[in-house]
């Protein structure tokens, strides 16, 4: 990342001229991460298993003509290496890698099968490692930023989750090691631990709900995943935190693990205070209005 003085940061275009790779960026959380990065001037390369990613890339190209999709099975070593090679050739240089890919095939430990456990590690951990290894050489010349989307289950247990949790927890430690190894090259590596996040089609929901008070209150209750903050997070919350971590705003932050979870993990003994204010409907309304309507210009 740019180490020059940030006194003239253009907060409206934080990633002008940057190229970013967002794994599993064709749908869900990855798509919203890519959208926000593009909003700030980045060109995004996305991958995924499903050819629908081509349609997403087409959508992205309206705002950033250089965006493209490459089909990639990140459980497959050779396919992942081929993806990295193709991106390095087509994009020329990659400044940002968001390791968003993640699958959860967890069973109770007593019943876990080696193959299913191994598959989870291959996609989540090995896939992440290969992305970092593959794009490091280019970044060593100019600096760069990695963000790894992990989970709060990397630090707190929730059954049955052993395969998923262990793969993501390994990513947290992996990121810290990458940060230490490559800080001197101006390469940063940070982790986001999302909590209860609505990862579906946020735009459709936003459009449907609009500023309808009753719908916002209902959505707030529906999205209550038990976190102390209300209504759950949206994919944009992860996307905006990713933006912070890949941009110059965080140029002096590396090795961090940031929880974007409405305070879920910090609850001691899973205690949280559910005493709602007397006018709880008003609270739901205000919170969800803010959460669902403040992204209109993205």
């Amino acid at each position: 990342m740019n180490k020059s003085s940030g006194k003239h940061i253009n907060y409206d275009r934080l990633l002008e001229g940057k190229t970013a790779v967002v794994t599993s960026g064709a749908h869900g959380m990855g798509k919203y991460i890519a959208k926000v990065l593009i909003r700030h001037g980045a060109t995004c390369v996305i991958n995924g298993m499903n050819p629908e990613g081509e349609r997403t890339a087409e959508e992205f190209r309206k705002d950033a003509p250089g965006c493209f999709f490459v089909r990639c099975d990140m459980s497959d070593r050779d396919d992942t290496l081929r993806f990295i090679e193709e991106v390095n050739q087509r994009a020329g240089h990659v400044d940002i890698v968001v390791n968003n890919v993640g699958i959860n095939r967890s069973d109770f430990t007593g019943q876990v099968e080696d193959a299913r456990f191994e598959y989870t590690q291959q996609v989540n951990l090995y896939g992440t490692m290969r992305m970092v290894r593959g794009f490091l050489p280019g970044m060593k010349k100019t600096g760069g930023a990695f963000v790894h989307i992990s989970t709060i289950h990397s630090v707190v247990g929730m059954p049955p989750n052993t395969a998923y949790a262990s793969s993501k927890s390994a990513i947290n430690a992996f990121s810290g090691a990458v940060a230490a190894e490559y800080a001197a090259y101006g390469i940063r590596s940070n982790v986001i631990n999302p909590g209860g996040i609505f990862t579906g089609n946020n735009d459709e929901i936003f459009a449907e709900i609009g500023d309808d008070r009753e719908k916002l209150i209902e959505r707030g209750r529906h999205g209550d995943y038990g976190q102390p903050d209300y209504g759950g997070g949206s994919a944009y919350d992860i996307a905006n935190s990713t933006l912070f971590l890949v941009s110059g705003l965080s140029r002096h932050i590396t090795g961090a693990v940031i929880k974007v979870d409405g305070g879920t993990v910090n609850q001691a003994h899973r205690f949280y205070d559910r005493r709602l204010p007397e006018d709880s409907d008003e609270l739901w309304y205000q919170v969800m209005k803010n959460r669902f309507t403040s992204v209109e210009d993205i």
């Binding site: 909590g195 949206s234 912070f244 940031i258 974007v260 409405g262 803010n290 959460r291």
Partner: peptide
């Protein structure tokens, strides 16, 4: 609002 779902965090 970039961090509207972040609370109790240490950075």
């Amino acid at each position: 609002d970039l961090s509207r779902f972040v609370t109790g965090e240490t950075l």
